[in-house]
Each structure stands twice: as C-alpha cells, then as structure tokens.
Design a protein around this nucleic acid. Structure first.
Length: 465
DNA sequence: ACGGCGGTTGAGGGT
DNA sequence: CACCCTCAACCGCCG
C-alpha cells in the first residue's frame, strides 16, 4: 500500500468538519482523504428521504462542499454497491463513517463493512450523532428503559462522561488523482420550489448556520427556556432539530456548552438537556423496537377503530380545520418546514383523537414536510401523542385546541403570524373567531370538540382486551 | 377517566 | 443469632 491509497470519508448524517470522529480518523490515518456523499434512495426503501429533507440536504451539502474547498464528491444509488465498488476502484486504504441507527441502515452498513473487510479494506465507523450509543443506557438489570424520566435521571445524567470533543491535529491532504463521482449540481434531488423557498427564507443549513442558530439560542433562548418553550409566539426554542438531524452541529458540543452555560438558571439548563435526551430515548426505542415506525408499540391499539376520511385529512394537512391554533401550526409547517413543539402536540392530538385518523397519516405527512424529519423522533413522537407508544401520553388525555390556544398563545401572536386572515380579530376571540361576528375568509370549525372527544373515548373502550 | 414502571418495603430464608 | 440477599407485593407517579 502506498501513499496514494486514499482514506474515504463517507459523509451521511454528520455534515460537518468539527468534532467529526470519522473525519478526524481518516485525516489522522496519514492518507489523503476522499470525501464522498451517496444519495441512496434504493437501500432506504420506504424510508427514502422526504421532499423537505431533500431540499434541506442539498443546501447542507453545498455548505459542506464549500468548507471542503469543493472536494466533496457525489454519487446517487444504492450505497451497498457504490461504496465497495468505489473503494476498490481507488484502492482505498479505508472507509470511515459516522454511524446511523435506522434499522435499514444498520443492516446495510453491516453488509458494507463485511464486504470491505473481505476485500482487505479497513472499514471504521464512529459515533457522530448521539450522546450515547442506543444500547448503552440500560436499567441495572440490563434491559432497556421504557419510561423517559428514569432513562434521563438514572441513565443519561448518571452515565459516565460523554466522549470528549475531538480536536483536529493533522493537516488535511486531499486525494485528487482520479476524479470520481459527480458534481453536486448534476444530482437529481427532486426538489420542490415552495420548500426550497422555505429553506432560504427561514434557515441557514450547514455547519455555520447551525452554529449561528445555537449561539442565538444561547444568547436569547435558554434563559427562561423551561417556561418559554411552551409559548410558540416567543423565541424560546432552539430550532436546532434540522441541524442536529443532519449532524451539522455535534450533539456532544451542544451538550457540553449547555451544561456549562452559567448565565441561565439550573432548571432551564436541565430541561434543555432532558429534551436532548428525548432524542436519545427515541433512538433507544427504535434500536430495541425496530418495528416502531409502522407498528403500535402497545399491541392493544391494533384493534383501534380508526376512521378513514380523506376529506378531513386534507383539511388538517392544509390548515383549514377552523381551529386557529391547529391551522396556524399546519401552516407554519407548510411555510417554514418546521413546527413549534407545543403545536406539534396540539395538531397531533387533533388528528388522532378529534378526527380519529390513524397516526400513520400524520407521521407520513410530517416525514415529507419537516426539515427535521427523523425516523426515530418522528415515529416515537407520533406514537407518544397517539397514546400507543412506550411511556405515552394516555389516550384519554385529549387536548382541547381552544384551551391550549388560550393558555399558550393568549394574545394570538403565533396565530396571527401564520394566519393573516385572523390578524384583525381581537385577542378575546382569536381562538374562537366564529363568535366574533366579523366577516372573514376563514373556515368555521369542521368538527365539534365535545362530541368528537366522546367518540374518541368510546373508541378507546374497544381496545380493552 | 388508565395502567405501566420503578422505587420501596418487608417477609422469608440462607449463610 | 445477626446479617444479607432475593423476590413478591404494593404504592405513587406521570405520561
């Protein structure tokens, strides 16, 4: 093996150069590096990237390519064929990547690792995406936690130190002997112009954008986070979820910075850490219950009498239910590729409980619409709100969108931002615009809260044994 | 309106 | 006997 055997860095969900263990290991191997990205819809099957994810991804990759001075090379197709073939063609010394934990990826990557080893090519994977490997945090008896609070308190907070941040030492040499792959602009990402505009107008994908967003949160959001995070009209959530999903910022860096933040109150800090650990918890669940994206974790919900109503689903999807807080959330999603967490719970409860539609419909719509669409988080959260998940919200707790709106968006700041038709409605009527008596271009409620609530509770009865 | 989880407690039995 | 370990039963919490 001579000096020209490149070390392939296979970027996946770790689109950054700082605190990237795979990147550092490849550089430190002493071989020139060959950074690659593979857009793999084939191996992903039904979990191929949603439309919003693709619109974010191309921006993030463009940013990464820029920080790699244009040396990132692109491929499209099944990675289980492309990576071994490429490694052979360029006589790679090794392939380095950050681990992903979707069941299809675990399966695919294991195959790739074996194939590379059979060809005497090193294959090294690293934890670039989580604080803890998904099978690391276990109860004293060795079984996985099923409840979040002890997972967080006795598991995560007690776990020995997270891996320290890595520091780059060696200087980077790039492999440029034979051009491989394609230019990013030659790849077909099947983009959507509305969502592309949503990225441009609201976000800055990539490592720099992630850091900027994190610093904004440290400056303005974390102080008062515990309370403030419930109010979608204020600026108290981190909005880091898309950046974390694509690994544009290191979760270890976020954890350490927040933990050592001295300006904020202890309870604000601890609450934000717990939110980071909900993400860990979702990955833990997915690892131990790989069927989670499709199957109810509580089997008794398999008997639940879901309705099937395209018309209702469309009203929900488009934000035309007539309940302002629900519609504002669904419109925020369409306009910005994101939705405030409190509102995600409200729209989820409305779909599953008031409309009595299966959580799959919500999960699939979110998968296609969210820039932070993430298999573990999305499926765990939908099961949570639907009441069929582990450590779930009890099914009989049904959010009332009027009460929730009054409580968490009292003046209607959030509602007015996303539903301009309601801009002039006085605060006292903002959550029930139909009683205001003003003529406005906004639908009257498509369903009655009290009777649909009763219907849901009755439906719940049929899940008992 | 539920019910699973996990912390606690105490009985019982072994060393 | 004194101590400790195990395990089942119970209770309160919290999603």
């Amino acid at each position: 093996m001579n000096k020209t055997n490149p070390a392939i860095i296979w970027f996946r969900q770790d689109l950054r150069v700082n605190d990237n263990q795979a990147f550092n290991a490849a550089v430190e191997s002493g071989m020139p590096i060959l950074p690659v990205y593979v857009l793999d819809n084939e191996n992903a099957g039904e979990w191929a990237l949603g439309i919003a994810s693709r619109c974010w991804l191309i921006q993030s990759l463009t940013a990464l390519n820029k920080s790699l001075e244009g040396h990132l090379r692109f491929f499209k197709g099944p990675a289980d064929q492309i990576i071994p073939k490429l490694a052979n063609e360029v006589n790679a010394s090794g392939v380095y990547w950050g681990r992903c934990y979707e069941p299809w990826r675990i399966h695919r990557d294991q195959y790739i690792k074996t194939t590379l080893h059979q060809n005497n090519i090193q294959a090294k994977s690293f934890n670039n995406s989580l604080l803890f490997e998904p099978n690391r945090i276990l109860k004293p008896d060795g079984t996985p936690y099923k409840v979040f609070t002890p997972f967080f308190r006795n598991g995560c907070l007690q776990a020995t130190q997270q891996t320290d941040l890595t520091v780059k030492t060696a200087s980077v040499r790039v492999f440029d002997q034979s051009p491989v792959g394609e230019d990013i602009n030659e790849l077909d990402f099947s983009l959507d112009s509305n969502l592309q505009a949503a990225v441009q107008n609201n976000w800055q994908p990539g490592e720099l954008g992630a850091l900027n967003q994190f610093n904004r949160f440290l400056d303005h959001g974390i102080q008062g986070y515990k309370e403030g995070r419930n109010f979608p009209g204020t600026d108290h959530v981190s909005r880091l979820s898309p950046h974390l999903h694509f690994g544009e910022i290191s979760i270890r860096q976020v954890w350490h910075s927040i933990k050592n933040e001295t300006e904020a109150d202890r309870e604000d800090i601890e609450h934000f850490l717990s939110e980071l650990c909900w993400r860990e918890f979702s990955y833990n669940l997915l690892y131990h219950r790989p069927e989670m994206p499709r199957k109810n974790l509580q089997e008794k919900f398999d008997k639940f009498p879901w309705r099937d109503n395209k018309k209702d689903f469309n009203k929900w999807r488009l934000g035309e239910t007539g309940y302002p807080i629900v519609d504002a959330g669904m419109r925020e999603l369409r306009q910005t590729g994101y939705m405030h967490n409190r509102v995600r719970m409200i729209v989820g409860s409305f779909l599953v409980k008031n409309m009595l539609l299966h959580w799959h419909h919500g999960k699939d719509w979110f998968w296609d619409s969210l820039f932070d669409a993430d298999l573990a988080n999305n499926s765990a959260s939908w099961q949570w709100i639907a009441g069929c998940g582990a450590d779930s919200m009890p099914y009989f707790r049904i959010f009332n969108p009027i009460t929730q709106g009054r409580k968490f968006d009292p003046q209607g700041v959030y509602i007015r931002r996303h539903i301009p038709e309601l801009a002039k409605i006085p605060a006292e009527h903002i959550h029930m615009p139909w009683v205001a008596g003003t003529k406005i271009n906004y639908p009257t409620p498509i369903l009655d809260l009290a009777s649909t609530r009763k219907r849901a509770l009755k439906a719940l009865g049929s899940t008992r044994n």
